[in-house]
Design a protein around this nucleic acid. Sequence first.
DNA 1: CTCGTTCGTATTTTCGATAATTATCAAATC
DNA 2: GATTTGATAATTATCGAAAATACGAACGAG
Lengths: 225, 225
Amino acid sequence: MSATPTSNTLTERVFHDLRADIVNGRMPAGSALKLSPLAQRFDVSMSVIREALVRLSEQGLAQLSPNQGFKVVSITAEDLIDLTDLRIRLESLALAESIRHGDTAWEASVVAAHHVLERTPLTQAEHGGTSDAWSHAHAEFHDALGAGCARPRLISLTRSMRDSSEVYRQLSTTREGSGNRDVAAEHKALMELATSRKEAEAVAALSAHLQRTTDIVLAGLDSSD
Amino acid sequence: MSATPTSNTLTERVFHDLRADIVNGRMPAGSALKLSPLAQRFDVSMSVIREALVRLSEQGLAQLSPNQGFKVVSITAEDLIDLTDLRIRLESLALAESIRHGDTAWEASVVAAHHVLERTPLTQAEHGGTSDAWSHAHAEFHDALGAGCARPRLISLTRSMRDSSEVYRQLSTTREGSGNRDVAAEHKALMELATSRKEAEAVAALSAHLQRTTDIVLAGLDSSD
DNA sequence: CTCGTTCGTATTTTCGATAATTATCAAATC
DNA sequence: GATTTGATAATTATCGAAAATACGAACGAG
């Protein structure tokens, strides 16, 4: 059903790969994204890289300063706070509407996404931080929660903001064992509350879930940089 | 204080001009945006046009179908409803926080923006619809209302959505005299409520203001297409 | 007459190279 | 010693053309 998003054009492939690199924390926040090295690495012309970077910049994952090139978006505590507040509001809205109007197919997709997430190992062998597979399954699960509302714009907004949040989350999972938190249990509760249509409780659980993650990241941010 | 947004690079100039064309309704919604004609019109290479169009697409003002080119974003009643609901929520939030935390400079900028808007003629000589100058002043005023909250992400979101809404608004002002509505009075009330820090009333006025515009556009949409 | 195929054309996508701009750093000046 | 200047290198922005793809018309078979 998902598998390869199969990007037909070169630019899309590069765009997806670069986004994954940023979102999964392989590119340090704030680091420069120079055209020629990237062109070499992906074995494409600079135009392709440039177009991909322009898209990423427009989405807020990179920054373009005219005549000075691109860099990975830089992170600040204030931005994370701002971002999290917006995410809580909008994802809560999407979830609430999904619970109110979502059909059985939506319920099924939530259950399915949770099933995958539950069975995906959180940590990877080497690379510190969570595995790409888990990050992906995690994003898919949260996506599924809000996908029942018939509002494309709201959905794409929450997706975009989730990507931005990932840049921060990667930072925290790298440095600390995420405290004594049972994330899997939170997800399971979320899934059950959503599919049993308990709107208020589900929204509360989702809000707490998002806020908790941010608080951990914030703690890590303050104590380091 | 504003004057020339001074785009240093060619792409930025083209981007701004094209966005203005779309937002001000000079490009029919859904119409194709072909590269070579645009390159000729702006007297630049296709690369520049392409980059501008990619940016517009990423912002939701155009659409890119791989290998099939760009077109002006197409409009639907459902999207406008979705969009308006989000705008009401987020602009209300920005306004409320501005009222709570904005300083005197913010108040001043609201008064100033309203002053300009008040003195800008609504209709232009020829071109049906509102004048570019008024559209600009109008955007600046609404921008000023929310600019007092110290949340860059929220601000840029509301800006982006306002642009999208403009595509719709242009459609309605072209075809009807906007009924018996005193938009100027609404703006004045908004300005006064905001600067006198009446949060609840200001937010209610803003929500009603946005919803009213949408209702008019929706009426026009249903009765035509 | 309808459906499918082939081919030419229009358009997009990608490339490689040039022009323009910025960054670097050593020498020179105050 | 700090700041400015000027040449050089590195990088981005732009261009024009080649390659790939989609679109539509003409054609032929069933």
